[in-house]
């Protein structure tokens, strides 16, 4: 079976009851009760003021998670090829366009239209960081995290340089919320390198498998895992929080999951 080996250089998380990685760790390890508190999204300070005013939750979330992962890796955001993976991109913006298109006037805003592309958060990331490297925006429905992780790892190997993964999901308002209920926004960021360095936090060996996914023992965390695509990463985050070697299986697609072997 083919495996893909990469090294974790930086990690970030922003989700319900997980305002950052250091606050998330004791919850993931069961040392502290996890309370799924509302997520506070910081303004996208890295953007010029004119752009900052135009962006919603998806850009704020993805930028916060991306910047935190880059800072954790002590990397330069401008140099990192990046992968933005999300089930719906900017869902509020999409709803707003659909609402206007269903009205008599159909006077849609040009800004809303160019923000409607799935890669809008990645586009704003480039504007904010000045990164001109390759940027790929993915959708894989519930497989936001595993699809992004595979893309990021294969890109890092292929280009022989570190790459940034930003896995993030937000929710539509009603009426689409009823069909796609995502209870909280959540994002996970990782910087992956093809080579080990003194700063590497862990070695990750990825392989496709048909085994069932690892679940979370904590009922609340398991509920999150199942209801937010990016939270499918929780078993991996839990293992990383422990600092121990081990192996988890992450949900990916029907009949295809991602096994991840973690070593120091």
């Amino acid at each position: 079976m083919s495996t893909v080996t990469v090294y974790l250089q930086g990690l970030s998380v922003l989700g319900p009851g997980m305002p950052d990685w250091s606050a998330a760790q004791p919850c993931l390890l069961g040392q502290q009760a996890h309370v799924a508190a509302a997520v506070v999204l910081p303004p996208a300070q890295a953007l010029p003021a004119t752009e900052r005013r135009r962006v919603g939750a998806a850009v704020k979330l993805s930028m916060a998670v991306g910047l935190a992962a880059v800072a954790d890796a002590a990397a330069d955001a401008a140099q990192l090829p990046n992968i933005f993976s999300s089930t719906g991109g900017d869902c509020e913006n999409c709803h707003s366009l659909l609402d206007v298109l269903a009205s008599d006037e159909r006077l849609i805003s040009p800004t809303r239209f160019h923000n409607s592309v799935h890669n809008a958060p990645a586009g704003y990331w480039g504007i904010a960081t000045g990164c001109t490297a390759a940027s790929t925006s993915l959708c894989a429905y519930d497989a936001t995290f595993a699809a992004g992780l595979l893309e990021c790892a294969t890109q890092a190997l292929s280009g022989a340089q570190s790459c940034l993964l930003v896995s993030f999901d937000t929710a539509y308002p009603e009426p689409l919320y009823a069909q796609r209920p995502i209870p909280y926004p959540m994002g996970v960021g990782m910087v992956l390198s093809p080579q080990a360095s003194a700063a590497s936090k862990a070695r990750l060996q990825l392989a496709l498998t048909q085994e069932p996914a690892t679940t979370m023992q904590d009922v609340g965390l398991e509920q999150l895992r199942l209801s937010i695509p990016s939270a499918r990463s929780l078993p991996l985050l839990q293992l990383l929080a422990s600092g121990q070697p081990g192996r988890v299986v992450i949900d990916y697609l029907d009949d295809c999951r991602l096994a991840i072997e973690v070593a120091a």
Binding site: T87, A140, L208
Partner: peptide, 26 residues
């Protein structure tokens, strides 16, 4: 509507079980 739907459709059409995603960069 979901951006992944077309890759999902093609994957089901051929009963595949390998990796899949949609790249959506306009």
């Amino acid at each position: 509507h979901n951006a992944y739907s077309v890759a999902d459709f093609v994957r089901q059409f051929f009963a595949l079980s390998g990796p899949a995603c949609v790249v959506s960069t306009a």
